[in-house]
Amino acid sequence: MIKTPSHFVRPQLWFEDVSVGQELGPLRKTVTTRQLVMYAGASGDFVPIHYDKDKAAEAGHQKVIVHGALKSAFVAELVTGWAGETGRLLELSVQYRGVDYVDDTLTCRGRVTAVGRQGAQGRVDMEVWVENGHGMVSTPGKATVALPVRAEIPGG
């Protein structure tokens, strides 16, 4: 028997099921030094403030800091997980306004801000953000996804 991953069991999200104000998340990530080292290796970003606490202190940080691009990956996971397999991420933008520290639990959330049709597809705009363990938004952003439209699928 083929093991079906749990998020594939969830029914596909259709454009018709989305409305303005709908929320995404929370997606929580506790970022360990181990994860930062894995991310440095996988991304090729070896700037030492992400794994060397002395270098982080020299650059003015109280602890090793989380790669901004890792936070963008978390936000992308939030959005693509929500949009499902036939949803498509069209745009993603994030601003790293504040640094986040290792061992903090980061929470990614989103909220639908606009919905509209674009040809045979639905287009959904949303605001997305990352909050640190103190509930402060360090990373605000925006995303746009295309979703399938039930009315466009024969027999859908």
Partner: peptide, 24 residues
Amino acid sequence: AKFARAIGDLNPLYIDDLVARNSS
């Protein structure tokens, strides 16, 4: 696969050949 594990996103579209092949 290494990148997907590093970011902690184990979406099978990134790591599971069979699921990905049967996807859109």
